[in-house]
Computed example of a mutant assay.
Amino acid sequence: MNDEARSLQREFFRIDEDVIDRVQHLKSRLMKYAETALETVFDHLIGNPDVAHYFEITDNITYLRAGMLAHCDELFSARFDEHYYEATEGMGERHAKLEFPAHVYTAAYSNMFARIVELAMADRRSFKTDDITALSRITHYDIELSMGAFYRHIMDKRAALSSDAQKIRHLVD
């Protein structure tokens, strides 16, 4: 996707200069909330029988926590540059390689977003409606990009496997 298409995509999500400025201004608070929110995200994942085995391994959580915080740092910088788009593509690809159902990622993301909002509203300097709206716009955009990459990588893998299967059938027949 070229820069013009990405710009139109952000425009469709109503990510304008006000949204970008607002999120950039809130970044230090958002990062603090994200660190705290990750605790409940991992607790929730550990409690899910479909994925608990993966999240019971401390090294996996350490790796994922660092990756998620790095991605939050990138997202809350709201630069939407090539580095950001590469990061969302990479995140989708890594998720696809784990082969968990898509709802695991969207639920974890949704739960983290909800926890960040809860923390922001409980803070003595609670968020304004425009702050929540800005955060909502960029996080929905981010999940769209990440899950789009997730599905692209799954489809590419299936296409490659199908192609390999056809080659094998051709050799056997």
Rank of each mutant, 00 (worst) to 15 (best):
V19I: 08
N60K: 14
E4T: 12
H71W: 13
K167G: 12
M147A: 03
G92M: 04
R115G: 06
M121S: 03
G47K: 09
N60S: 09
E144A: 03
E17P: 07
V19A: 07
Q9M: 03
A122M: 01
S163I: 09
A78G: 03
R94D: 13
D142P: 02
L69C: 06
H44V: 05
H25T: 06
Y151K: 06
D3F: 12
I15V: 02
R152W: 15
M147R: 08
I61R: 11
V117W: 00
A108F: 00
E17M: 12
D156E: 14
I143V: 11
K167W: 12
L98V: 12
L161W: 05
L26D: 00
K128I: 08
S28A: 10
F55R: 14
I15A: 00
R29W: 06
R29N: 14
T129G: 08
T58P: 05
H25R: 06
E118R: 11
I15R: 00
A70L: 13
A114C: 15
T106W: 02
R29V: 05
R125I: 12
T40P: 01
I46E: 15
A159I: 11
M1Y: 11
L69T: 12
T62S: 10
F42Q: 07
D16R: 05
H25P: 00
T36R: 13
T40Q: 02
D142S: 08
I15E: 00
L45F: 14
R152I: 14
N48W: 15
A120Q: 06
I168Q: 11
G90R: 04
F150R: 07
L171I: 15
H83K: 08
D59L: 04
V23W: 00
